[in-house]
Design a protein around this nucleic acid. Structure first.
Lengths: 353, 353
DNA sequence: TACTCAAATGTAATCCGTTACATTTTTACA
DNA sequence: TGTAAAAATGTAACGGATTACATTTGAGTA
């Protein structure tokens, strides 16, 4: 690590002028200055000009910290994101950020790594008047107490992975139906041995997607083989590992449905390394439709989720809650779409018994 | 968009108790309460207990907005990120977030889309006492005025893509040397027609990487062929488009060096669609070493950048500046590494003239 | 010119902790 | 027991903007 230094005299001594200095310079009271800024029509034109000149001259900028302190509104929303460095969440963040900005709110982004304590701590920002509300992207209520498990004690909305029976607004999609649709797609291609690479044990997402997978198998009269269920954690490497296990099975699956695209791409890597072809020998499907999926080899069949819309909707709901517009625990369900690409194809002949 | 509602009585009437209420209940002065919280040893044990009981009973939480307002320190850092939904930046954000949190700062994340005006507006957060400093991930000084172009008028550091001749701390890597190293790698494999897919025209990153590419070609006595230089914008699709152009050339390149991994993956997709093999027919190299690169088909040769460290270093530098520790415009240069994988290989025989 | 009413402006309280300084209580030792 | 010093606690100013309420200015009218 090299380092070069320049000489520099950074003496920004934070000499911000106050409303009082403006008032003095303009020869008016602070109230008049404030009014000039807030309700110009309540100030006579001559005075207005004089005040404006003083403001320009001093380069006065109102101390918004003081404003927020006095008003009790921070115009800040906290986003609890399990992993910022995750492609899907990055899109959700984008949606949140834009929606917040367009309504004059700032987004305080927290990379919580899915840790309960960290999230509880972040939620305290609201307790301590540093933020107006919380957006939680994980199925955990950071405000939960012994008495109130599914109820938010402070303004909060929950998006993407939601808490069961939540008593606060939520935004999600029907993961069960989506997983069922994808599994049906695979079944329709003749697959009978369909593996699933799951997400973290504790995640409701995993439970719902698994349920959808089972729904489809049952509906098709297929049995559920536990050896085809593999644990993962939504990372590329866990997909790779899961595929390693699955390909080693005495009777290997002809299709692998991964609960997200990263794991699917990890699995694809392993499959190709083994010398098998996708989809001729084995089909692979993912979930999320991240940008890379369309460029994978072969392009990945997956479920598209409106990620940005998740963020946008969550922010709008939260602001509604803050403004007292949303009084109920609304549950918004966004649509999904099965995106069929080349990573899924007809089951190999010898697999049709 | 379905929506279901639950009945709910969310009446969090924001009735936060104040230090004065605690003082009254404990029968002490506000100063004593404050001391109980700040310097417990300056309060007698009995009083301390009494105050603590009052605090617990009332559920008192200090209004940190008031604290920040009075102290003039917000403990908030603003991060100006061109695209949050970018794999590389997501890693940088992770680094910033963790470093900030560990020092008691919050990160206000701004998705600026590389827009000068948006960035200038965000920088105003510091002007208006809503944040203590700014971290800029793009080569643009949001505080620039006619007189001060390369000098920050308020606390700021610049990371990743840095402003030329900046008079504020910067964190970067030697993009020119890195691009030269990668180009040399390709030359050493026998490649003579090496294309480059550039980033946005205006980006210093592009200029430096291009310079490194030219350095290597010149050093090897190779001429620079403008038809092998292709514009891109760091997205998957622009890589795809660039490859389309390059493969259509009468004498097509035997290697394509992309200025980031996303474009490289876009290019790879196009190459494979054309029926060519990587690296037998054409080698592909990227820049950034995002997680997906190792799982690409074939795994991508690229330049590893310590993304998280960029964020971490930037935050630490900024906090130093805020504490008056760093008085100079330090320039930190982080190391890079050429990661050789299977997307680059010997140039095809018929290409060696 | 006197008087009314509206418009313009000013005064001062308020938001909630922190902390310098003042005052009271306790401790310790002669 | 007296007194100095230390410990504990209290008082009140402060930070910057907003705003209810009070006061002044000015216009309009009889």
């Amino acid at each position: 690590m090299l380092s070069v230094t320049f000489s520099n005299k950074q003496q920004w001594e934070k000499r911000l002028s106050t409303i009082r200095e403006v008032a003095d310079m303009a020869g008016v009271s602070v109230a008049t200055v404030s009014r000039t800024l807030q309700q110009p029509d309540r100030v006579s034109p001559k005075t207005r000009v004089r005040v404006q000149e003083a403001i320009d001259h001093l380069g006065y900028k109102p101390n918004l910290m003081a404003v927020k302190f006095r008003s009790g509104k921070t115009q800040v929303l906290v986003a609890l994101v399990p992993t910022v460095a995750n492609v899907f969440f990055a899109r959700v963040i984008k949606g949140m950020q834009e929606a917040a900005a367009s309504q004059g709110y700032s987004l305080l982004l927290m990379n919580t790594m899915g840790d309960d304590d960290i999230e509880r701590n972040c939620a305290k920002l609201v307790d301590t008047s540093q933020a107006d509300g919380v957006i939680q992207l994980r199925a955990f209520n950071p405000f939960a107490t012994d008495q109130f498990q599914s109820e938010a004690l402070l303004p909060m909305v929950n998006a993407c992975e939601i808490v069961d029976g939540a008593r606060f607004p939520t935004v999600t999609l029907d993961n069960r139906a989506a997983a069922k649709a994808m599994t049906e797609h695979l079944i329709s291609l003749g697959h009978r041995r369909i593996a699933m690479v799951k997400g973290p044990q504790s995640s409701p997402l995993t439970r719902d997607r698994l349920a959808g997978y089972e729904d489809a198998l049952k509906a098709a009269g297929l049995s559920i083989d536990d050896s085809l269920l593999c644990a993962g954690d939504f990372t590329l490497s866990s997909g790779y590992r899961a595929a390693t296990t699955l390909l080693d099975l005495p009777e290997r699956p002809t299709a692998i449905f991964c609960e997200n695209d990263e794991m699917a791409m990890g699995a694809m890597r392993k499959v190709r390394e083994t010398g098998l072809c996708i989809p001729e020998d084995i089909s692979i499907a993912g979930f999320d439709n991240i940008a890379f999926s369309a460029y994978a080899e072969p392009p990945l069949t997956t479920i598209a989720q409106p990620a940005e819309e998740f963020g946008e909707t969550a922010v709008n709901l939260l602001i509604d809650v803050l403004n007292g517009k949303t009084k109920h625990a609304i549950k918004v369900i966004l649509p999904f779409e099965v995106i069929t690409r080349q990573s899924t194809g007809p089951a190999p002949d010898n697999a049709n018994r």
